[in-house]
Design a protein around this nucleic acid. Structure first.
Lengths: 247, 247
DNA sequence: TCGGTGGGTTGACGTGGATCAAACCCGGGG
DNA sequence: CCCCGGGTTTGATCCACGTCAACCCACCGA
């Protein structure tokens, strides 16, 4: 490699860490921000952090000072109560935010765990608050992100409270599919990063039930399933199954 | 009533509408705000609104422009999907905020319905954003409130995903009890404002199951139940039932 | 090559809560 | 006073999912 090429490469590496050059702009916080403002934002995202599969990004009880934007990889969050019961509360992929739960009490109330090797941007929360006092659009966008999390949770509550097993799994797969699509990946074919057990925990089902539902979908020609590799063969079938099932 | 008394009464009625004189200060937004700032806040809460039992505070699809603080009364929020299934996502009492779901898409994503005659303060959201750019503590407090809502929802997800019927009801009653206590009411004796059906919807159970659980608790000496009047006889019993039930 | 290991599938069976149905309770109106 | 209606209770039955257990398969390290 020539000196020039090395220098260029180095410059790229440096620049690449900045929000202004991040290809997640549309998904993450800086949406709709003016170039001048974007520059300020770059200072906000001070730290990057790499995680290996299985690493904790943060744990229950750990002091809260940053939220995190997933730059690459895949996470799950879970909560637990004393007696050992726990529940996966969400799966986060590229461009999604982690850690909003910690704001309320200055302490994280759930665990965030990398399901594959991942990278996140740490956003010191006090900085974010400071900057969002200056930049209206940032402030408003952040509020929208928090609100969207609430709406998402309501959706999960609806799922857990009213849907039967196959409807839950269908809803889950359609949601994943859509999120992959929004990121430029195939909505029809993807790898699950999580185990049957983790899916079950998220959906309020036992892993055997999840497994059976997968088998059923495959029998019915809705999916092809090979371990974690999923291919959706009949999206509409999944949709009707999700909604029209019961009266 | 003398003229003086009437004038005093009138003045009181006027003054009473302001945040600075609201006895919900501790529960609602203005916590920890300086007197000077509290004055600005008073301008924020422009409108009061009275609702009769059964009235909608807002509906799904309605444009969002304000959040609401419950001044008195009792509300429920619910979401629904096309096929008619719906779910109660929460019950809100004095000092709690309603409408945070609407921020994300500028449109309300759930219905808010008064379960008894109620009164709310409407807080225009753009004003709130404006003011929270000036008052750090307000900004931070608002973020905490949103975050707390997320944490609460995670708790409900845990309940819906992992608990059995009686555990759910115990958790629900203990939560209500605590919230009444925080408002200076008896934690041991209170009236349910909602029907068995609404409790069931919130807890992901059928009303018959809720009713049976109430009967069971009464047989076991944990509660006395007379229609909507609940008296908790054994708080610890409820707590152990909630957690220790299963391995 | 082999055994070990951990996740996944499948089957047989049990059960908690849904469903269906009847009776009850209480408040309100004629 | 009775009747009516909505919310609630209670009982009988059903079924979706959990539980328990065996087995399979992919992967891995020896």
């Amino acid at each position: 490699m020539s000196n020039n090429a090395m220098a260029a490469r180095l410059a790229f590496e440096l620049v690449k860490t900045a929000c202004s050059n991040c290809n997640l702009r549309e998904l993450c916080l800086p949406i709709g921000i003016e170039p001048a403002e974007l520059k300020k934002l770059d200072e906000l995202v001070s730290t990057r952090r790499r995680l290996r599969r299985g690493d904790f990004l943060y744990r229950v009880g750990q002091g809260f000072e940053s939220i995190y934007a997933v730059r690459s990889g895949f996470f799950k969050t879970d909560v637990m109560i004393e007696d050992g019961r726990d529940q996966v509360t969400g799966f986060q992929m590229t461009g999604e935010l982690l850690g909003l739960d910690g704001i309320s009490s200055e302490v994280h109330t759930c665990n965030a765990i990398a399901l594959e090797d991942s990278e996140v941007c740490a956003i010191p929360f006090s900085h974010l608050e400071g900057l969002s006092r200056q930049i209206h659009t940032l402030q408003h966008h952040f509020h929208k992100v928090m609100s969207r999390e609430i709406v998402r949770d309501h959706g999960v509550m609806l799922l857990l409270g009213t849907m039967r097993a196959e409807e839950r799994l269908a809803a889950f797969l359609l949601n994943l599919s859509q999120r992959f699509k929004a990121r430029g990946y195939s909505p029809a074919e993807f790898n699950l990063r999580m185990s049957r057990d983790e899916i079950g925990s998220y959906l309020g089902l036992k892993l055997e039930t999840v497994s059976r539902a997968f088998s059923r979908f495959q029998e019915d020609g809705l999916l092809s399933v090979h371990q974690k590799k999923i291919r959706i063969l009949n999206t509409d079938g999944l949709k009707t199954l999700m909604t029209h099932q019961r009266g």
